[in-house]
């Protein structure tokens, strides 16, 4: 793929644009990069209060880690979700946001999307680092699993990059895309077992089956690649065990397929980009 080699040739540009994103994100804020930790912390507190305390979502204890804390269980899935959501929507708006650059200078345009995704990777890495420390403090042992965590972070990055590439060109031609995606992300969030365990879906499926509805609810539910990613990250970080092989392969496949299709769409539609912006 020439697009990939092109991306390789512009490594330095990619690095510089990523730095620009990272530095620009919290410029002129008193707390600076600390904001990237406050946001997930706030979300964690809100979801823990609502789903852990008020709605009393019951979660299985970590096996074999022995952890049993809703907030930690939640964050192990929330951080990958936040990354995917931010990286994808950020990548989507990166072309429109840099219209002045695209219209005046030639450089491989996919770098803009990739830089935005990578800038969120920086945030993701920091968050995961802090989470590791917290898990250790509460008696978990995620350290041996960290190399695998990084591998799956890479595939999640590919997954978000592919979606970002496809949506970024769509957004150039139809500005509605970004608003539509806002709604889709809300649905997607609740369609992924982040604030509740997948056993709840199983219960619902059994109920439906007893009523005579023969819908493969669980099968459909598990088609969602984010469901698999969330399971994998939870296995590694919260439970401290090997993820299910099927889930792991599904994640790898989803990352590769997403990036291939994303690139293909991007390459197809980038030609008239400068005049459409």
């Amino acid at each position: 793929m020439s697009a990939l080699t092109q991306l390789g040739d512009s490594r330095e540009l990619l690095a510089n644009l990523t730095l620009r994103e990272v530095r620009g994100k919290y410029k002129r804020t008193a707390l600076g990069q600390v904001w990237s930790l406050i946001n997930p912390l706030a979300m964690m507190l809100i979801y823990t209060a609502v789903f852990g305390q008020v709605l009393r979502v019951t979660i299985p204890p970590g096996n074999p880690s022995g952890l049993h804390l809703f907030a930690l269980w939640l964050v192990c899935a929330l951080l990958p979700w936040n990354f995917m959501s931010n990286a994808m929507t950020g990548g989507m708006s990166s072309l429109v946001g840099n219209a002045n650059l695209i219209k005046k200078v030639y450089f491989p345009r996919q770098v803009l999307v990739a830089a935005t995704v990578l800038s969120w990777d920086v945030t993701f890495l920091t968050e995961m680092g802090v989470l590791t420390a917290v898990l250790l403090a509460f008696g978990g042992m995620p350290l041996p699993w960290l190399p695998l965590v990084v591998v799956f972070m890479a595939f999640l990055t590919l997954f978000a990059l592919g979606l970002g590439l496809a949506l970024s060109v769509a957004n150039v031609y139809f500005r509605d895309t970004q608003h539509l995606v806002g709604i889709v992300m809300q649905i997607w969030f609740y369609a992924t077992p982040i604030v509740y365990p997948i056993s709840y879906v199983h219960k619902e499926a059994v109920k439906l089956h007893d009523k005579g509805w023969n819908i493969p609810v669980e099968f459909m539910y598990r088609l969602n690649p984010m469901e698999r990613f969330v399971e994998v990250f939870r296995s590694l970080m919260y439970d401290n065990r090997w993820p299910a092989l099927g889930d792991a392969l599904y994640c790898i496949g989803a990352g590769i397929v997403s990036v291939v299709i994303g690139y293909w769409l991007f390459a197809r539609f980038e030609g008239r980009m400068a005049e459409e912006l």
């Binding site: 510089n16 530095r23 620009g24 650059l101 005046k104 200078v105």
Partner: peptide
């Protein structure tokens, strides 16, 4: 074509030289 189009207003001149330079290759 248009000068300084790749500059980020919040970044310093130094940072922008590196940024714009790498955009230009």
């Amino acid at each position: 074509l248009e000068l300084g189009s790749g500059f980020h207003p919040e970044l310093s001149g130094r940072e922008n030289i590196y940024l714009n330079g790498s955009i230009l290759g």
